[in-house]
Structure formats: structure tokens, C-alpha cells
């Protein structure tokens, strides 16, 4: 009797998750972190030539409203802190898409003193888009990969971030150093 109810509950939960995934996959709102050069390819992907809105995607103004964080290119140590703030403000489930080679291994900035090399050590990345810079076709293809990943449960970066938070946190502090804030809210 009891097991039957648990089984039913599990099935119901899975069904609900499936419905949620359908809606999440087809309505992705982006927050664009456009400090890198790959950002120049986004206008073509958004406007009438490639028309991203077909996939149900659109730009949003703040991290709280968005589902996808686009990191377009290299990240300096200073901007990494802001990206982490933005990612942590987004409400789950959330996804992160990294453009170009710079978030993978540093790209052409691999030996720069102020640029981080691997974004994956600090934040979980769901989709990498290849190309320096990626063409709009590649961008659209990457978004299609993200949609497929959401549908078949492989885009689970937000779960990885939650489960391995200690590890990510350690890397973040190693790279950025502890932040000491002195104002009326923190004393």
C-alpha cells in the first residue's frame, strides 16, 4: 500500500519534471555578459537574418529574469567576480553558455596575467560554442544543442554547481581572494 503510493508519487514527479522540461527548453531568456569580442555575433543571430526568437529565445534585462547566461569570450579576473554574482542571482534552473576558445583554455589570452583560463573551474558550463569568433550559424547550433540538452537532461550545470559548491567556491576564492566588505549592511 505504502510502496504503491510512493511509486505513484515518483511517477507524478517525473511527469511534472517532463512537462517543466518541455516549457524550459522552448522558452529561454538570455542574460548577455557581453564584454568579450564574441558578442558581436549575437546581433545577427537575434535579428531578421537568423531570428533567434523562432526558438523562443529573447534578451532579458536582469539576471533574476533570465534562464541562460551567455559568457561571450574571455573573462578577466575582475569581470569573473561579476559573472559569479550574476550567475548566483539567477533563479534555478539556469544554464550557462560559453562562446569561443577563451573560456575553455584562455584562447589567445592564455598567458595574460589578468585573464582566467578555464571558466569550468569556477562555474558549471552547459554548452561550449566553437569558433574564434563563432559564426551566427554556430551560435544558433549551440543554442539548439542547449535545447536538446535540456530535453534529455544533460544540461544540468545548476545541479552540478549545487552539489559541488565547496569545490567551485574553493577555486573562486583561490583565484579572486577573499572579499572584505565594510559597510553598514555587513557589520
Amino acid at each position: 500500500m505504502g510502496e504503491g503510493i510512493i511509486e505513484k508519487d515518483k511517477k507524478l514527479k517525473e511527469g511534472w519534471e517532463g512537462i517543466s522540461r518541455f516549457f524550459r527548453a522552448n522558452s529561454l531568456w538570455m542574460l548577455m555578459y557581453c564584454t568579450g569580442c564574441c558578442a558581436i555575433e549575437l546581433p545577427q543571430a537575434m535579428t531578421s537574418r537568423y531570428d533567434m526568437e523562432r526558438l523562443g529565445m529573447g534578451p532579458m534585462a536582469t539576471p533574476r529574469q533570465a534562464d541562460v547566461l551567455l559568457v561571450t569570450g574571455y573573462l578577466s579576473v575582475k569581470t569573473l567576480r561579476r559573472v559569479i554574482y550574476a550567475y548566483e542571482q539567477m533563479s534555478t534552473p539556469k544554464y550557462l553558455v560559453a562562446f569561443g576558445p577563451c573560456p575553455i583554455n584562455g584562447g589567445i589570452y592564455y598567458d595574460a596575467y589578468a585573464v582566467i583560463n578555464r571558466l569550468d573551474q569556477y562555474l558549471p558550463v552547459d554548452v561550449y560554442i566553437a569558433g574564434c569568433m563563432p559564426k551566427p550559424e554556430a551560435v544558433m547550433n549551440g543554442f539548439q544543442d542547449l535545447i536538446d540538452g535540456i530535453k534529455n537532461k544533460t544540461a544540468d550545470g545548476w545541479k552540478r554547481y549545487r552539489d559541488n559548491y565547496e569545490w567551485y567556491r574553493k577555486n573562486q576564492i583561490e583565484s579572486l581572494g577573499e572579499l572584505r566588505i565594510k559597510d553598514e549592511f555587513h557589520e
Binding site: 516549457f23 524550459r24 531568456w29 531578421s48 531570428d51 523562443g56 533563479s91 534555478t92 534552473p93
Partner: peptide, 27 residues
Amino acid sequence: GRFQKRYGPKFYQEFRDIFKLLTKTGV
């Protein structure tokens, strides 16, 4: 969308947006 020479989203896109938001967590 058609006025801007785009295809535009599906006509039921707004339903998908609303229901997606309702399935997300809220702080």
C-alpha cells in the same frame, strides 16, 4: 516579427513563457 522580416515565435509562445516561469524557483 513579420514586419521586421522575421518568422517570429510560435503563436503559443506566451503560454510557454508563463508556464516556464511558474515552474521555476522564486526567491
